[in-house]
Simulated assay, not measured.
Amino acid sequence: MSDSDDRPLEVWLPALERFSPAHPLQALLARADRLDNGPAGYMQGLDGYFEAGVSPLPVAALTRELLASDAGTATWLCADPAWVQPDMSGARLLACGRMPLSMDEAVAFADALQPVFEEAGMRLEVSTADRWHVRLPQGLDLPVFASPEQALGEDLYTHLPQGSEGRRWRVLFNEAQVLLHQHPLQSVRAAHGLPPVNSLWLWGAGVLPARVRTSLAGVIGDDLLLQSLAKQAGVPHAGRTPEALAAAAAGWLVDLQDLPVDEIASGMATALQAQARRQPVRLAFASGERWLHRPSHRLRFWRRTRQ
C-alpha cells in the first residue's frame, strides 16, 4: 500500500500520559506528523467514529439488540451491576460492569430487585452476567444520566440525575442499593475475596437508532458497544488479537483504548510497527492527541523519542 492512500488504519489508544518515554510506540510518534486533537474520552471517541443521529448514544438499546436481538422500538436503560465504596465525603463508584460475577449470581441479585422495578412499571433484564438492561414504559420523561466513564472514582452522588425529574431515579437507585446490600450473596462473595455487587449504575437510555453510519471499513476490538455500533452500521467486526491486528487493512479501526499500556507493548506493538511500515496509520489517543505515521516516515531517523 502506498503513501498516497488517504485512508489510514485507525488505532485507538489509551490516554497519552500513560505511555512512558521508553514505550515502543514512542518511536512511531517521534517520526509521525502531529495532527489536530480529536475527541477525548470513550463516549466522545465512539461519537467520532459513528453517527447514530442522536447524542448521547443510546447505549442500552444498542447493546441489548446485540445481546438479545429484541430492542425493537422500546426505550432501554443500562442498569449495570456496580461496586460502591463509602468514604468520609460520601461514596465512590469503584467498578461498573466487568465484575467477577456468575450468571447464577446475576439472576439472584436481579430477582431481588425485580419487584422494585415492576412497581415503577419497568422490567429488569439480565442480558449477560455483567450487562443488565431495563425496559422502560413508553412516554417516560428521562433525565440526563452520567456514563460510568464520568463517574468512576468520583463521588457518585454528584453524578446521579438531578432536579425534580431525577428524583424518581435517585429513589430507585437508593432502593436498589439497600436491597443489594442486604442480599445474602454478599457474605458469600466476601468469603471468596470478591468485591460486593452493592449498587446499579443507570445510564445509556434511549431507543435503537433507525440507522448508524460510519466511514470505517471494519473494526477490531472486544468492546461490546463498539461491536453493537459496527453491527448496526453494517461493517465487519473481528476480535482483538495480534493476528487480527496484523491483517488489518486501510480504513479499519483497531480499538486498544481500554488496554494497559504494558500489554500493548508486549502483545501489540510489534504488529503496529509492522503495519506502520506497510500503510499509513493514524494513532488516536483517548486523551485526544493524534498523529499520522506514513511508511516513508521511517526514514526520519534524526527524530528521537521524547525523554
Rank of each mutant, 00 (worst) to 15 (best):
Q162F: 03
T214P: 02
V178R: 10
W201D: 10
E165P: 02
V219H: 00
G204Q: 00
P196E: 10
F145Y: 04
R167Q: 14
R168W: 09
P143R: 07
G204M: 01
Q177M: 14
G153Q: 06
G153D: 05
S215E: 14
L140M: 15
L200W: 09
S215D: 15
R213H: 14
Y157N: 11
H183M: 02
Q162L: 08
A146D: 05
D155A: 09
G166E: 03
H183C: 03
P143M: 07
L180G: 04
L185H: 06
P161Y: 09
G193L: 11
A190G: 10
R211F: 06
N198A: 13
V207I: 12
Q186L: 03
H183S: 03
Q162G: 07
G206C: 01
S147H: 07
G221E: 00
L216P: 08
Q150R: 13
Q150M: 13
P196W: 11
F145L: 10
R170E: 11
L160Q: 07
V171W: 09
P184N: 05
P143L: 07
L216Y: 10
A205Q: 01
Q150H: 06
L142A: 02
L140F: 05
Y157C: 09
W201I: 08
L156W: 08
D155K: 08
R167G: 02
P209T: 04
G206T: 03
A151H: 06
G153S: 04
E165R: 12
V197P: 03
S164D: 14
S215C: 06
G166A: 01
V219D: 00
Q177R: 15
H183W: 04
L140V: 15
A217F: 02
W203T: 05
L172V: 03
T158M: 05
P195I: 13
S164L: 13
L200N: 02
S215W: 05
L185A: 05
E154N: 06
W201L: 10
N174K: 11
S187I: 09
G166W: 05
L194D: 13
P148R: 06
N174W: 05
V171M: 11
F173E: 06
D141K: 10
G193R: 12
S187N: 07
V188E: 12
Q150E: 15
G163E: 02
F145W: 06
L216V: 11
P196M: 10
L152W: 06
L200G: 03
V212E: 01
N174G: 11
Y157H: 12
S147T: 14
S147C: 04
Q182S: 09
L142W: 00
F145R: 06
N198E: 11
E149W: 01
E149Q: 08
Q150T: 11
H159F: 15
R170H: 09
H192A: 13
L142V: 05
S164K: 14
